[in-house]
Amino acid sequence: MQSTILQTAAHLMVGLMLVFAVYVLLRGHHEPGGGFSAALLAGTAFALFAITEGPDQVRRAVRFRPGTIAMTGLALAAMAGLPALFMDKPFLTGIWWHQGPFFMGTPLIFDLGVFLAVLGAILSVLLALEEN
């Protein structure tokens, strides 16, 4: 779409939205948000980018193929369940590590997997529709 205002605004917006998506992803455990919402947000950002600059630019910016992103997400989510198996707990049980000020758990990895899977799915449909 040829619109200078939209293009200029989009350049600013897309970056902001992507940063916000990461924020939403990370805050999800305690506040509204999470992997799914973050993926929708990032997907919207890329949709905006695709409308203003065209799908080729999006492909270049993302670098990885959407299918690869989705598959990585599924693999991450599935692998997040493995540590529990090694500790003789049911698959996908949340395992947490406390290390000084750091606090980290498999649910975060799982949520990251959800984020990538949904984002990959959105991107693949979006780009297929845009590449007319």
Partner: peptide, 30 residues
């Protein structure tokens, strides 16, 4: 589950196997 957002905790911890199935469906549908 060390989380205050119940919805998210349900999604990624208590019922995470369901979520795993759902994201598989999402990717396949895409």
């Amino acid at each position: 589950a060390h989380g205050r957002n119940i919805v998210n905790v349900i999604l990624v911890d208590f019922r995470s196997l369901d979520t795993l199935g759902e994201i598989c469906v999402v990717v396949l549908a895409a």
